[in-house]
Design a protein around this nucleic acid. Structure first.
Lengths: 234, 234
DNA sequence: CAGTGGTCTAGACCACTGG
DNA sequence: CAGTGGTCTAGACCACTGG
């Protein structure tokens, strides 16, 4: 509960003000000294909250002037986290999936780091293949933090994707995305019904809510059947 | 000269060790206490250097274990159009390129549609391979509208990338981006020095300025040598 | 001038890892 | 156990901005 560091609590408070609209873009946030007084912490701790939010693009700072709420980043559809079932439905196609795995597992190094857990800690592990008009279009391997989403294994993912479920029970506050091209491994090739080593778009996605890192997913799409798009305006 | 903060000097020193190869990936870097002693600073200042490099993805830290050099991951941004030469320079690597083509051509159907010209109209066509530390990292094929950028063919692209030149002469107002995975064609494989059909990240980019569609580019990256990343916050 | 953020110190206590 | 990183304090001096 109160295991959260104090600087994190201050960050959360500031985020909440911005999200509620109480602090719009260009709003001047309290100074380091003011926050230190309000939260009964040292100035260095208040400063850490402001500095990290600045690094994250949420705030802007100017020496002698103060700290201000930054303009929200414009994001194209490439950058939204969309639910694959909705995407397929929007194209007027039929959606279906195959649940290949849904179990508890132990976190390996990479998963532990991504979820902020100890190596070997219990995690929920799912592998689901999503079909567009009967054709496999996404291989979704996902590791979920059991502490934050204890009911994960009990869900019926045939009618509600993990993405849909997770965004409902743990609203997203932050998403890290990496996109790369890889050749299909044997496991992925079989699941997607494509040739081994054929080019695939692989997306790594780490989703966080206010309570911590919720989930870490690898999404693999056959290169021939999927594209990501975005329109940016300046 | 000495106007540089001390934590920045420590960061620079660590970066130099990594770039010179003296500290390879997984190498254990000196502890906070050790650095504090070596540089005659407080632990908090040494810590700041390590923390910032960790946030930047250069180092990895584990409580009780130590701080280690991270695996290098070149990552472009999904959110902005960056100049590949700047990206490479930002990683502390050397940039070079090979100009394979720079000529006038006739627009095919796809190019004509993308640039909003008639089929068969004159366009400028360039193919340039960009190298990161001597390793091909991007195959850039670009079609440019001669009406909007008449001086394109006269540029010296060995020292200024097309991207850099175009953003200078025709400031961007809009960019359409599509990302997909493809197997390398023979031409691309030869230029990037990779095996044919190996997985590549292919980016289509149409850039517009206030006067119209300036340029249409296809950027192909070896899957193993490039990633796109984005951090989104809500 | 008072207030702001930027840097820095010399301590402290804690959780965690390995031997 | 000694060593590591994670958090935090209560001070300090500085450069910068506005009034």
């Amino acid at each position: 509960m109160s295991s959260q560091p104090r600087y994190a609590a201050i960050k959360e408070h500031i985020r909440a003000q911005i999200e509620s609209g109480k602090w719009p873009a260009q709003f001047r946030v309290p100074s380091e000294n003011q926050l230190a007084q309000d939260f009964s912490v040292s100035r260095m701790t208040a400063r850490r909250a402001l500095s990290e939010l600045t690094d994250e693009g949420v705030l802007m700072r100017s020496q002698g002037l103060g700290t201000f709420v930054a303009e929200p980043v414009p994001a194209g559809s490439l950058l939204e986290v969309r639910n694959i079932a909705d995407e397929i439905a929007a194209r007027g196609h039929s959606y279906a999936n195959r649940i290949l795995k849904l179990e508890q597992a132990q976190a390996g190094t990479e998963v532990a780091v991504a979820l902020g857990l100890a190596e070997g800690a219990a995690v929920y592990h799912s592998i689901i293949v999503h079909l567009d008009n009967g054709l496999p279009i996404q291989f979704e391997e996902r590791y979920t933090n059991p502490t934050l989403v204890p009911e994960y294994l009990q869900q019926d993912f045939t009618h509600c994707t993990p993405n849909e479920y997770l965004t409902r029970v743990a609203p997203l506050t932050e998403v890290d995305t990496t996109v790369e091209a890889v050749g299909a491994s044997g496991e992925v090739a079989r699941a997607l019904e494509i040739a081994e080593n054929s080019a695939c778009l692989q997306i790594w996605r780490r989703t966080k809510s206010s309570s911590g890192t919720v989930s870490f997913a690898r999404l693999v799409h056959p290169g021939s059947r999927y594209r990501l798009g975005a329109q940016l305006r300046f």
